[in-house]
């Protein structure tokens, strides 16, 4: 389920590469919301951010401590780590317009 990032996150190099989108999606196992969120997000990224994104999917059930450190309440939640500013998006990512706006991408 979890796809670990290829590189250690949040290094200076990553920030410099302005057009690389580092995303982290927190989900809760295989709940309907989570699965929908994953498929919606993957689809969206492939469409708008092909080859310039890294998506990390974290199952909070497996790592409950992360819920505290990341201040997770509402799930699923997508965090845009870079480019800055950080943004947090919650929900099943079904509202594509909002997701794109949240990621700082031009609307379709």
């Amino acid at each position: 389920m979890t796809e670990q990032p290829q590189q250690p996150p949040a290094s200076i190099d990553d920030l410099e590469t302005g057009d690389l989108y580092r995303l982290r999606l927190f989900v809760t196992g295989a709940t309907p919301n989570s699965t929908r969120a994953i498929s919606n997000l993957k689809e969206l990224c492939e469409t708008h951010l092909a080859n310039k994104y890294e998506l990390e999917i974290v199952d909070v059930y497996q790592q409950p401590l992360i819920a505290i450190s990341e201040q997770l309440i509402a799930l699923p939640m997508l965090v845009k780590l870079s480019p800055l500013p950080q943004r947090r998006l919650i929900g099943d990512m079904s509202d594509t317009g909002k997701v794109l706006r949240g990621l700082g991408l031009p609307a379709m």
């Binding site: 309440i73 509402a74 949240g102």
Partner: peptide, 18 residues
């Protein structure tokens, strides 16, 4: 926070449960 659809408060449940 941007709300992009259906969500739940599982994060809260997980934290509390933990």
């Amino acid at each position: 926070i941007e709300e992009t659809g259906e969500y739940d408060l599982d994060g809260l449940f997980i934290r509390l449960g933990y």
